[in-house]
Structure formats: structure tokens, C-alpha cells
């Protein structure tokens, strides 16, 4: 198969951040990581061209994917490979969008990036294979990409064993036995000791290494956070009641506690009547202030952060968590109490 390879300006050798605004261009040969990929693909598949584009241009310009697609189609290639973008956000988004556009245009398309790259969500319906975190893992990543290219080129679909990540398209197929028989088989497999046997794998929440303990809370700056949708009356930031697309921050300074009417929960996943009668039931400001005044808490961070944890995607939730941690660290906060509804 004739393959076209999409990379950013950095991997095309054009330049770094100072060249992130350059528009798309074509080179009639494998370039950068494409050279190694070409050698892994052997004689069966040829990289006939490399299309590259600056990260800013490609990720922040709505027309960029279509523009890049025109260049891809002009090369006469039957297949597009984008990346690997590892954990680079703009590059990953560009790789995802370019792969999606190529797939919709009828090309075989594949993107490669880290499973947590926001670009994974942009690639659908094109498949994404997971890579390592950084270009230090380029060698092993390209071997995986080459195997995926060969498999896709032969008309097969990728599976999680090939490194497929992101939303896995559902396809109907005829099972060998009916659901009742499969359920009994699965129960027997589990009883025989395979505790993870399943037809429907649960989402992987990853693992976060717990932070070390605070040496002395009576000297620490502590933040109060909640996913309970608690906002000042009137919901000035328009926080959603479900599938929150954002988190917000509101002041706590000067408030001894929260009062009925001053704050309300907009959470759509439970009855908020009880919480609204006394918002300290969601965010325990009243007793946190007391403990601060008594010296058990060094000081309270002057704001609280809030989102709505109701049908929120794991990816969005993880992103809010990372942003909260970064912001709190920047503000010198040593520990946080996050209430969960």
C-alpha cells in the first residue's frame, strides 16, 4: 500500500516552537521518524510522502484538517499514518483530526499517540494505537505502529492487543453460543479462578501514586474542593448539572460558613433539597473555619474549586484533577479535602 505520513514541524525537522505557526507542506519522501517506519514496513508498503504542519496552525485552525487532507489526497496514497504524537497535546489533536478526516475521505487511517492524549478523542472513527509518554520511546512505538499498519493494510481491524485505544467501535457479529451458555461458561471460568474474565471490560482508571502526608496540619494551607455542583446562588458561572465541561473557583474569604440561600448545588444526580438547606453539608466550611480558629488547621485556602461529578467522562474528570492539583500546588496548598457526592 502507498502510505502518507503526517508529522508536526518538529519531527519534520523544520523547527521548534518558533515554527509552530507554519502551514501544511509536503515532502516527497519519508522524513524524521518516517524513515525508521519505512524501513520497518519493508517492501510491502511504501511511504510515498510526508505531510507536515506547525502544531499551532494544525490544532487551532478549524480549516487545517481539510487543508492537510487535500495535500494527503494529492499524493495518491491509500493510507495515512499520523504521529506518533506521544503526550504532545496540540500535535496529538492534529494527528487525531487528520486521521479522522482521512478515514472519512475513504483512506485507511491510523493515528499514534499516548492513551491520555486529548487527540485520542479527535481521531474517531479512525483507530489510534497507544504509544509511550515521550519520543524516548520512539523505537518501540514505531515497531507497534508498523505492525498496526500491516494489519490494517491487510483489511483486518485492530484490537486492544494491537495497542488500540480510545472509543472502540461496536460491531455486530454472530457469537458461537447464545448469551445463556456464555454466561454459564463465564461463571465457571470465574469459579475456576480467573477473576478478570469478562465480555465487557470496565474502564481502566489508571493509578495515582498517593501524595506524601502533611507533616503538621496545624501549620498547613488546606483547600476545600467538591464535585457536588455547589455554586453561589444564581450559578454565575453556569456550571452544568451533568456532564460538566468545566470546573469553577469561588471565594471563601470572609465567610464563616455557608448559609442557606448563599450557595446552592446544581448537581443533577441527586435531590439537592437537603444540601441547599445547609450547604455546609456539601462543603464543610463552618467546621473547617472553627478548626482553623482553634489551630488544628494552619490556614484555609481562600477559594474553593467545584465541578459537577455526574455523568462526567473519566477523561474530563482526570483533566480537572490534574488542573486542580497544578493550581493548588502553585498557590502553595499542601493538602485538599474533596467532598464527593
Amino acid at each position: 500500500m502507498k502510505v502518507v505520513h503526517y508529522v508536526n514541524q518538529f519531527f519534520a525537522g523544520v523547527g521548534g516552537e518558533e515554527k509552530a505557526t507554519v502551514g501544511p507542506e509536503v515532502r516527497e519522501a519519508p522524513t524524521g521518524p518516517g524513515r525508521k517506519l519505512a524501513s520497518l514496513l519493508g517492501d510491502e508498503h511504501q511511504i510515498v510522502a510526508t505531510v507536515f504542519c506547525g502544531d499551532d496552525y494544525a490544532a487551532s485552525n478549524d480549516a487545517a484538517p481539510a487543508e492537510i487532507l487535500e495535500l494527503i489526497k494529492a499524493t495518491g496514497a491509500e493510507m495515512l499514518v499520523s504521529g506518533p504524537a506521544f503526550t504532545s497535546g496540540r500535535y496529538g489533536i492534529a494527528c487525531g483530526r487528520v486521521a479522522a478526516a482521512a478515514h472519512k475521505a475513504g483512506l485507511v487511517a491510523l493515528a499514534a499517540m499516548h492513551a491520555e492524549n486529548p487527540g485520542v478523542a479527535e481521531a474517531a472513527p479512525a483507530p489510534v494505537v497507544a504509544t509511550g509518554l515521550t519520543a524516548r520511546e520512539m523505537g518501540a512505538t514505531l515497531e507497534k505502529v508498523a505492525l498496526a499498519v500491516k494489519k490494517l493494510a491487510s483489511g483486518q481491524t485492530l484490537t486492544p492487543e494491537d495497542g488500540l485505544v480510545g472509543s472502540i467501535p461496536r460491531r455486530n457479529r454472530l457469537a458461537e453460543s447464545n448469551a445463556a451458555a456464555r454466561a454459564v461458561d463465564l461463571a465457571l471460568t470465574r469459579l475456576a479462578g480467573d477473576r478478570s474474565a469478562t465480555e465487557i471490560p470496565m474502564p481502566d482508571f489508571g493509578a495515582v501514586a498517593p501524595a506524601g502526608p502533611v507533616t503538621d496540619p496545624s501549620k498547613a494551607l488546606i483547600a476545600l474542593l467538591t464535585e457536588g455542583g455547589l455554586v453561589p446562588a444564581g450559578n454565575p458561572g453556569r456550571l452544568e448539572s451533568a456532564r460538566a465541561t468545566k470546573w469553577l473557583r469561588y471565594p471563601l474569604e470572609e465567610l464563616p460558613g455557608l448559609e442557606e440561600g448563599s450557595h446552592v448545588s446544581v448537581h443533577g444526580g441527586f435531590s439537592t433539597v437537603v444540601a441547599n438547606e445547609n450547604p455546609n453539608r456539601i462543603l464543610p466550611l463552618d467546621v473547617a473555619r472553627e478548626l482553623k480558629d482553634e489551630g488544628a488547621i494552619g490556614s484555609l485556602y481562600a477559594e474553593y474549586f467545584v465541578t459537577t461529578g455526574n455523568g462526567t467522562s473519566v477523561a474530563d474528570g482526570a483533566r480537572y484533577g490534574v488542573e486542580w492539583a497544578a493550581e493548588l500546588r502553585k498557590q502553595g496548598v499542601q493538602a485538599a479535602i474533596l467532598t464527593s457526592t
Binding site: 467538591t226 444540601a275 453539608r281 456539601i282 464543610p284 479535602i337
Partner: peptide, 25 residues
């Protein structure tokens, strides 16, 4: 309870606040 992570509406006001204080402690 999910609707009141730092409260318990079954308790009287004083007892509920003591419960909340215990949770934060």
C-alpha cells in the same frame, strides 16, 4: 449519604455539626 457528604439530616443541628467536625478531623 451521597446528597450530604459532610452532613446528616437525621441528626439535630448540634449533633450534625459535631458529626461534620468529626469528618473533617
Amino acid at each position: 449519604g451521597i446528597p450530604y457528604p459532610t452532613g446528616d439530616p437525621a441528626l439535630g443541628p448540634k449533633e450534625e455539626k459535631a458529626w461534620r467536625r468529626l469528618l473533617v478531623q
